[in-house]
Amino acid sequence: MNTDLSALQLVLSADPALIAIVKLSLLVSLTAVLLAALIGVPLGALIALTRFPGREAVIVTLNALMGLPPVVAGLAVFLALSRSGPLGSWGLLFTPQAMVIAQAILVAPIIAALSRQTVEDLWVEYRDELAAMNVAAAARVMTLIWDARFSLVTALLAGFGRAAAEVGAIIIVGGNIDGFTRTMTTAIALETSKGDLPLAIGLGLVLIAIVILINALAWGARRAGERYAG
């Protein structure tokens, strides 16, 4: 009872601190997904369309990396970005940018692996037709990515789901700094540790609601797009 009430109050009151946290969470996760997509989609398409020695090993590795523990990714980014690490001079540790990097590393394999599958399936369908139309190799990749775009949305959503839900990596590289690197998930971790379980649950409900909303929007966009493009 108590829990439901305070969660509801939190949402209804539109507390500025809460809004800032939500905004930062979305900004970090969406930027990470975008970054990961820029790497993952072309990489997946490239692996789908090329044959080279060790290709199977690359695919297996990519699939395995989908399960990369966030803490491990976080620790690797932490060690790299620490002042004593190789990229320490960038001064990025404990910043939102560091969180974007860590999440992009977690999300890129998911997007790459799912993109590879999607593009490869479409490639089987399109191969002869594109050859018959004498389409150049680079244009083929673009065509496949474009025509698979509605299926690729699913890959991006899977990536976003992982980014939005994860706490292990960003709490290490972001430091959970109040008003600066505190996101929904790290705030939930903090409130839990402070024993404020109703607030933690409230934040959790807000997070779930946002994830559902984004999925619904993407779903709607996908349906509309499919009606248009078949």
């Binding site: 620490s82 002042r83 004593s84 690490g85 320490g88 540790l93 404990f94 430091g175 959970n176 700094i177 109040d178 008003g179 600066f180 690197t181």
Partner: peptide, 21 residues
């Protein structure tokens, strides 16, 4: 001045200082 607090255990906090972070 904005203070960004990284909350850790004392040992870990000192290590953060040791790395210059």
């Amino acid at each position: 001045i904005t203070v960004k607090v990284i909350a850790q255990g004392t040992g870990q906090a000192l290590d953060t200082g040791r790395r210059g972070d």
